[in-house]
Write a protein that binds this DNA or RNA. Sequence first.
DNA 1: CTGTTAGCGCTTTCAG
DNA 2: CTGAAAGCGCTAACAG
Lengths: 334, 334
Amino acid sequence: MAATIRDIKEQTGLSLATISKYLNGGNVLPENRVKIEAAIKELHYEVNEIARGLVTNRTRTVGVLVYSVESIFIGTLLRHISNSLRKAGYGLMICDSGDDPGIEAENVSFLLNKKVDGIIVIPVSIKTDSLEMARKAKVPVVLLDRPSQDAEFDCVRIDNRRAAYQAVKFLLENGHEKIGVICSHTEYTGKERYMGYKEALEEAGCALRDEYCAAGTHSIEFGFEGMSRLLSLEDRPTAVFMTNYEVALGAVMALNKTRIHCPEDISLMGFDDLIMSHVIHPRLHMVVQPMKEMGEKAVELLLQRIGSREEQMAMEIVMGTRISEGDSVARVEG
Amino acid sequence: MAATIRDIKEQTGLSLATISKYLNGGNVLPENRVKIEAAIKELHYEVNEIARGLVTNRTRTVGVLVYSVESIFIGTLLRHISNSLRKAGYGLMICDSGDDPGIEAENVSFLLNKKVDGIIVIPVSIKTDSLEMARKAKVPVVLLDRPSQDAEFDCVRIDNRRAAYQAVKFLLENGHEKIGVICSHTEYTGKERYMGYKEALEEAGCALRDEYCAAGTHSIEFGFEGMSRLLSLEDRPTAVFMTNYEVALGAVMALNKTRIHCPEDISLMGFDDLIMSHVIHPRLHMVVQPMKEMGEKAVELLLQRIGSREEQMAMEIVMGTRISEGDSVARVEG
DNA sequence: CTGTTAGCGCTTTCAG
DNA sequence: CTGAAAGCGCTAACAG
């Protein structure tokens, strides 16, 4: 059996209270501090977090609820979240919702049952009914990547619409007028990014052509299909905006199946700088979100909420994005 | 505050013991059962897992230690593990080792501190020193995908060497003699798969040509680089075996940059049937491992170990693989 | 089958 | 600053 605080008591002759106080960073006479530290070392003592949790009602564990653990985007975010949490001594309990709001709700209740101190969620949708239980239980929740419809929860995200707007504007500034888009019309980020695309075109007085918009899901499959569709058009676009990482992967594969070259024949603008970017030639121009900072901020905000007793107003942290330039956008003459 | 077993006691007039017994599936008089159930419903009572854990020394939580949470292969495995675990009422605490054995060791100690009931690990390497602490603490460990050097731990995996052997044999049977390989020489699976490749060629009496072996890491980047290298050879191979998913992705991208076509000009054999397979044209022939079954088996074995008190001999579960046929292998005439 | 009684290992008043 | 004592919410003997 592992050593307990009681063994330390025997070893040092001090009382439980004193030892506990030391363990929690309280002030203890130097000589006692030395004794305790020696005993801890000798007995390989480590605090039993479970017992501590029972009395403090804190488990030093946070739940992380993601819409799909298979997504590369999520994987990257997860790495940063996990690192930050570890640094703070917190563990993370992961739940995969499999893109299903019903499972998401079940997972919330599971996590509450596990008595997590807080929950970071990358939600399936902006309808966040599934999170009501957490609110009732007064367990802090921080949304990541996607906000809730009514801004009732803290959220860390980017301004998807503006990011897309800037990306398309970049294409416009390079003389492109026939700009296609491959996006998702089933998810929040995809829809927002489409709106940004639309606004940029409208502002520039460009006609919005239905056939230039390939709307499906944020998946490699659809990226492939969408790009194939755009390329087969009689009057095909001179530039294409791909609204997420998976879409861009599939789209580039589709392009590579053809004789059409980037950037000579067609310009490309992607979203999210993940592993692929080091592989694709030419290097893609793309919108970059600060993944690391987003993960860290979400953790920071959550821990802050966990730390403060009183409830506060929900807040949104909107991170900036930038366009990383590659070699995939050509200048065309109007 | 949430209701406790004490509130149920007040409500029903029964003793703690009876209620606890009911909660743990024991036999209780029908009338009492009804009373208890009514009280539970009314008070929204839920067991406090923390308190239970303190006395039973079980947390119903297992640690999952992965070499990198960003890998798509891991993501897929994670989904299956997480599902199985959830079904059994277990939570999973994830730790990302970032491909670093040092961090892996730290994570083990972190998980032990969190009092997980067992650990599933997809290890950084087959040198599993980092797991010694778990063994000492008598916390069951099940390895997944990669075994430990000395087979000291339970393990669920495939026979990488044989799987590769069969894949290459398939190519040989289709008349190919000039077969290239893109593999990793830094990781266990890559090395094993290379060995399988080698054995198949030797058995068939084919010469092993150094320039046909592109050895690097299991990454998209290296897949791209390796394939580029093979394609640029004067006397290039007629078929290429790509020993993992990321490598195959990169390799296909490299191929698509050229005028060389698959399967007319070159045949391809991949490894792991993940999302990509639905996108790449022609559909790849590939070695398929039973990801779902592997994840499930690992969980099953671990829970079994957790359940039985006595220590048993380590066992290996080696799952079968199969070759999924696509359109990427052409028959060539010897 | 049910109730009583002890704790699990730790924190936390409250005195001293 | 330190110690004694109570108790977090639950399970596990052991009687009855």
